[in-house]
C-alpha cells in the first residue's frame, strides 16, 4: 500500500469513528471524567481560600457564599496567632541544610559507585535502591532512641540529620542514573590532563550531572519541606517547630475560629503553590524521577 492509500484509509477510519453515536458517548464520558478530576484537584483549595476571607457567621450560614466584605484581617490574625513566620523560617533552614548535605554526600557516593568497579559495588547499588521501599514510618522507635542518645532531640540538628539520611537511597538512585550516562571519554581526558579523583569529581562529573543533581535536590527539598512524622516525633518545643507540625496545632490555637484557621492553612501552603507555579516542570521531573528507570 502506498503512503497515500494508508493515509486515506486512516482518515476514513477516523471519520467513521468520529460520527458514530458510541464515540460521541465515549467522548462525553471522557470529558466528564477529565473535568471531574480537574475540579477535584483545585476546587477544595479554592473553596478554602474563599472561606478564609469570610466571617465565621457567613461560613456557618452558607459554605458557598462569597464574602460581603473580604476579611483580610483573618490573615493578620492567622499570622500573629499561629507564629507562622518562625515556623516557616525553621522549615527553610532545616530543608535547605538537609538538602545541601544530602546532595553533597549522595553525589559523592554515586560517583564512587557508578564510575568505579570494586567488590560489592552491585550489592551497594541494590541495597541503596531497596532502601527506597523501606517504610520509614515504621522506624519511629529506633530513630527516637538514636536521636535522643546523641543529644539531638528537640534540636534542629536532629531533624537535619534525619532528613539528610532518609533521602539517601532515593537521591543516590537518581544521581547514579545520571552519572552513568556521562561519557567515559570525558573523564579519561581529564585523567590524561593529570586531574586526580577529587578534581575529576568537582570539575567534570559533578557539573555534567547537574540536571540529575538538581532533580534529586528538588525531590529532597520537597520531602523535607512536607515531612511531618519525624518533625512530630523528634521535637517538642515551639522554637524548633516546622510549618507542617504547626498545621497540627492550628485546631488548638484557633479552636472555633474556623476562618482564621483556614487562612493559616492557606498561608502554610502558599510557598508550595508559588513554587509549583514558577517551577512546575522542574518539580514534576524532580518528584517523579525516583520512579522512572535511572
Amino acid at each position: 500500500m502506498s503512503t497515500d492509500a494508508v493515509r486515506i484509509k486512516k482518515d476514513a477510519i477516523r471519520i467513521k469513528r468520529d460520527v458514530s453515536p458510541a464515540s460521541i458517548i465515549l467522548s462525553i464520558l471522557k470529558w466528564t471524567f477529565l473535568l471531574f478530576l480537574f475540579a477535584y484537584a483545585v476546587f477544595p483549595v479554592i473553596w478554602l481560600a474563599i472561606a478564609s476571607l469570610k466571617t465565621n457567621g457567613e461560613l456557618m450560614a452558607n459554605p458557598f457564599s462569597l464574602p460581603k466584605i473580604w476579611q483580610f484581617k483573618n490573615y493578620t490574625k492567622a499570622i500573629t496567632v499561629s507564629g507562622i513566620g518562625r515556623m516557616m523560617l525553621n522549615s527553610v533552614v532545616i530543608s535547605m541544610a538537609a538538602t545541601a548535605l544530602n546532595i553533597l554526600i549522595t553525589s559523592m557516593a554515586a560517583y564512587s559507585v557508578s564510575r568505579f568497579e570494586f567488590k560489592g559495588n552491585k550489592l551497594l547499588q541494590t541495597a541503596f535502591s531497596s532502601g527506597i521501599l523501606v517504610p520509614l514510618n515504621a522506624l519511629m522507635v529506633p530513630y527516637f532512641v538514636l536521636i535522643s542518645n546523641i543529644g539531638l532531640y528537640n534540636k534542629m540538628g536532629g531533624l537535619i540529620l534525619v532528613y539528610t539520611a532518609i533521602g539517601v537511597p532515593i537521591s543516590t538512585f537518581i544521581v547514579m542514573g545520571f552519572m552513568k550516562s556521562v561519557p567515559k571519554e570525558l573523564e579519561e581526558a581529564a585523567v590524561i590532563d593529570g586531574a586526580n579523583f577529587y578534581k575529576r569529581f568537582f570539575t567534570v562529573i559533578f557539573p555534567l550531572s547537574r540536571s540529575g543533581i538538581v532533580t534529586a535536590g528538588t525531590f529532597q527539598f520537597l520531602t523535607c519541606w512536607n515531612e511531618f512524622v519525624y518533625a512530630n516525633l523528634l521535637t517538642s518545643s515551639q522554637t524548633v517547630r516546622t510549618i507542617q507540625l504547626g498545621i497540627r496545632y492550628f485546631t488548638n490555637q484557633f479552636s472555633t475560629d474556623y476562618v482564621s484557621m483556614y487562612a493559616a492553612i492557606i498561608v502554610s501552603i502558599l510557598p508550595s503553590i508559588t513554587a509549583y507555579v514558577l517551577f512546575q516542570n522542574q518539580i514534576i521531573a524532580g518528584l517523579t524521577s525516583g520512579a522512572v528507570k535511572g
Partner: peptide, 21 residues
C-alpha cells in the same frame, strides 16, 4: 499540571483541608 498540583501540598495540609470539607 493541575492533576499533579495536590502532590506538592503536604499530607498534613491536605488532611486539614479535607477535615474542612
Amino acid at each position: 499540571t493541575v492533576y499533579f498540583f495536590p502532590q506538592v501540598i503536604s499530607g498534613v495540609a491536605l488532611a486539614t483541608l479535607w477535615s474542612a470539607v
